[in-house]
């Protein structure tokens, strides 16, 4: 169950319709029985790769026939779907199905792996992220990322948050930017008296919220989260999930998770990845189903999805 903690003041403003709808979604109980939300609440969408965009939401990413290969061997193939603005999109699926590979193409982090190559297109607000004239550094300024293991820099809490604005040369009062980011990261009250202390002295959950605050400091449009809570205890996990709800009125969030309950609790949309073995015996990931989270968890179109979300497989 999601932890009920106090929300900071920032979340008290009235919400846009779509985020209110997302926040009101009842915390899905046990996905193991998979039917808690009642069948047929979402519009029926035929099968695989249907971009089921809600009418009130614009796509922030339009992914078209995306194939990512390492050293020529595809890790994830022919992925096509749209990721919507100001919503939380969960990527679920068994290990090795290319979720992390996929999420890392959205801010060109795969560029750091020399053997990685990308085919197909990823459009970000209509602009091809892999066009030759696109600077990956500029991409990452707009699209932040939080990793599986908290990775604070071996610096003070303050310097961790200030790092992004500093390297980007952002104008403004640094103390204010740091405070704002820490408040949005729901960490300010815990750390305001020890901003100069080394971030390595924080608990794992605090470190991860620091990493989120650090990503927020550069005021990104999207935050990608690669299993952000997999190394954390349930209380810290609950805090991070609360935080995601609070953030989604300003940023779009894409989250990779192995935790089915978490995907059901936090996300508006869910993409289910699976491992496919091709004719040559090589394994790669594909997207089986992409739809409203309720639909994926209660009335999935594909039987592989159903097997996975009900816990029969994986």
């Amino acid at each position: 169950m999601r932890q009920v903690t106090e929300r900071p003041e920032s979340s008290s403003e009235p919400r846009a319709a779509e985020s209110a709808a997302g926040a009101q979604k009842p915390p899905a109980a046990e996905p193991a029985d998979g039917r808690v939300m009642g069948p047929g609440t979402a519009p029926a969408v035929e099968g695989v790769k249907a971009p089921a965009a809600a009418p009130d939401s614009k796509p922030v990413f339009a992914v078209e026939r995306l194939t990512v290969s390492y050293a020529g061997r595809p890790a994830v193939r022919e992925v096509s779907f749209g990721i919507e603005e100001r919503r939380i999109t969960a990527l679920i699926g068994a290990s090795g199905c290319g979720k992390s590979t996929f999420i890392r193409t959205l801010n060109r982090m795969n560029d750091l792996i020399p053997s990685a190559s990308v085919e197909g297109s990823v459009r970000y607000h209509g602009q091809d992220l892999y066009a030759p004239d696109v600077d990956p550094v500029q991409v990452r300024k707009r699209i932040g990322m939080v990793f599986q293991k908290p990775n604070p820099f071996p610096k003070s809490i303050y310097d961790n948050v200030a790092f992004g604005p500093r390297v980007l040369g952002m104008k403004g009062e640094m103390d204010e930017m740091v405070e704002r980011a820490l408040r949005r990261g729901a960490l300010w009250d815990e750390v305001k008296d020890r901003l100069k202390q080394n971030a390595f002295g924080m608990s794992g959950g605090q470190q991860q919220r620091l990493c989120i605050a650090r990503a927020l400091a550069t005021d990104p449009d999207v935050i990608l989260m690669d299993e952000p809570a997999s190394a954390l205890d349930p209380i810290s996990t609950g805090r991070i999930e609360d935080l995601m709800f609070e953030l989604k009125d300003r940023v779009s969030i894409v989250i990779v998770t192995h935790n089915m309950q978490q995907a059901a609790r936090v996300s508006d949309m869910t993409a289910f990845f699976t491992v496919v073995v091709d004719d040559t015996g090589h394994r790669h990931g594909e997207v089986v189903e992409y739809d409203e989270t309720e639909k994926v968890f209660t009335n999935p179109a594909d039987e592989r999805t159903e097997a996975y979300v009900t816990g029969r497989v994986g």
Binding site: L112, M145, F147, N151, F153, G164, V167, R214, T218
Partner: peptide, 11 residues
């Protein structure tokens, strides 16, 4: 992870 964390912030 330090490299990635830094690059992901647009450094």
């Amino acid at each position: 992870s330090i490299r990635e964390g830094s690059m992901a912030l647009g450094a």
